[in-house]
Design a protein around this nucleic acid. Structure first.
Lengths: 133, 133
DNA sequence: TGTATCATTAAAGTTAAGTTTAAGGTCAAG
DNA sequence: CTTGACCTTAAACTTAACTTTAATGATACA
């Protein structure tokens, strides 16, 4: 298998963001592992693309850029930071599980409102649900 | 049953936000139904508190302040906007279901990483998972 | 070898969703 | 009838996460 390299445009396409976002992440210290050509152009390896996907995942768990930078710094430290990274993912798991429980509650309310308005539309008025809004 | 009224402080406590947030929502047109005393003080009824809870719910489905204002305007229009409100909640349901599916995917990745780092910590090195990060 | 298209940076601008400040009016208890 | 804790507004400020701009350099290909 060949070791393929990618441009910043490719990386942006993989992530579904503009290239300016990738540059911003790099400037904020999220991508210290990305190498450069002599010209200064960034070179993204498959490993880098995989790391970008993890960064995207962490973002979607609600982590801030600053918190993700900490993770990138830990990656740079190698095996010395394995325990910290492990604990970070354990915490992210707790947080995502909480988010899912919260979202289920939200869905329950939305489902109630769907029923509320379905019946109100059928009746032509909201008055059938009095003492409610 | 008495018709109880509440202050902005009560409303804020119910929502778990500072009073400034309630004032901000009002200024942005999210609370056109909240009445005032002669002094200008806001009076929150139980109905208003219930509406605040729905606004909080809508926010948690990812709606912007501007989109929620539209909903508040529909409420002010009464029964004439029942169909729009119904469709809005149907759309929110679709969106929340999508968010839950997305969050499940995120959780799968986080779970994988938990296992990845658990085994790496046990081995003392990440090298046991080569071709990965 | 021209030229279109990509890349680079620093710095300024944008947006959403609040929060803070300043100056002042209201209310309830003692 | 004062005092402390509330309430009001407008306007300025904050923060995160980008996005845009401007000026410039590199690359690929016909």
């Amino acid at each position: 298998m060949e070791k393929e390299n990618f441009t910043i445009k490719d990386a942006a396409r993989f992530m579904g963001v503009p290239t300016s976002t990738i540059r911003y992440y790099d400037k904020e210290g999220l991508l210290p592992f990305v190498e450069r050509k002599e010209s200064g152009y960034r070179i993204f390896t498959e490993k880098d693309i995989a790391a970008l996907r993890i960064i995207d995942c962490l973002k979607k768990t609600g982590m801030s850029i600053r918190e993700i930078r900490q993770f990138s710094e830990w990656i740079e430290q190698g095996d010395a930071s394995l325990q910290q990274r492990y604990e970070m993912f354990l915490e992210r798991r707790r947080i995502v599980e909480k988010q899912m429980a919260e979202l289920q509650k939200i869905l329950d309310i939305v489902n109630y409102k769907c029923w509320y308005y379905e019946t109100a539309v059928a009746a032509g008025t909201e008055k059938i649900h009095d003492s409610d809004r």
